[in-house]
């Protein structure tokens, strides 16, 4: 886990990681969210809507952004304050996603960083992009 402090960040600093979406994670998300929409459960229904398979929950994909800021950028001292996202393309079980965060804005007056987030699939297709506002917890040595 990273433990960047606000003072350590600079515009352009970026981190990324990969994660593969599985059927098991789809099941777990369905249990957590209670979202039983057939787009996410029935291949035939999804195909009738023009998709090649069941579509992964958008918020399952974007849940990786919790890890992005909570573990990687800034990591330990992150206090998630808000995010704006766009879901650009469908994700399917078996896709391997690359999650990238880049420091976009720094606001020292309120100790808040804006992180630009981008999630792409194994073909380089953008599936989610957005901006995340993060504040900072108290540092342990303060």
């Amino acid at each position: 886990m990273n433990n960047y402090r606000f003072e350590d960040l600079y515009e352009g600093l970026s981190v990324s990681f990969e994660e593969t979406v599985t059927e098991e994670k789809m099941d777990a998300f369905r249990q957590i969210s209670g979202d039983v929409n057939p787009l996410h459960m029935q291949k035939e229904f999804a195909q009738s809507q023009g998709y090649k398979d069941k579509v992964v929950y958008g918020m399952l994909t974007s849940s990786l952004l919790s890890r992005l800021v909570g573990v990687h950028l800034p990591g330990k001292y992150c206090l998630l304050q808000g995010m704006e996202l766009k879901y650009l393309n469908p994700v399917y079980a078996g896709d391997t996603l690359t999650v990238k965060g880049t420091v976009y804005e720094l606001h020292p007056s309120v100790k808040m960083a804006v992180i630009k987030a981008l999630i792409t699939n194994q073909d380089g297709v953008k599936v989610v992009r957005g901006k995340i506002n993060v504040g900072f917890l108290r540092y342990e040595d303060e």
């Binding site: 304050q81 808000g82 804005e105 606001h107 020292p108 007056s109 309120v110 100790k111 808040m112 804006v114 506002n133 504040g135």
Partner: peptide, 24 residues
């Protein structure tokens, strides 16, 4: 306090200026 942060950030971006913590 959270909306105070959002206000300050929006104001800094709108007027293209940065404040320091003491000023705010």
């Amino acid at each position: 306090s959270l909306e105070q942060i959002n206000l300050i950030v929006a104001i800094e971006n709108e007027f293209e200026m940065m404040f320091d913590m003491a000023e705010v």
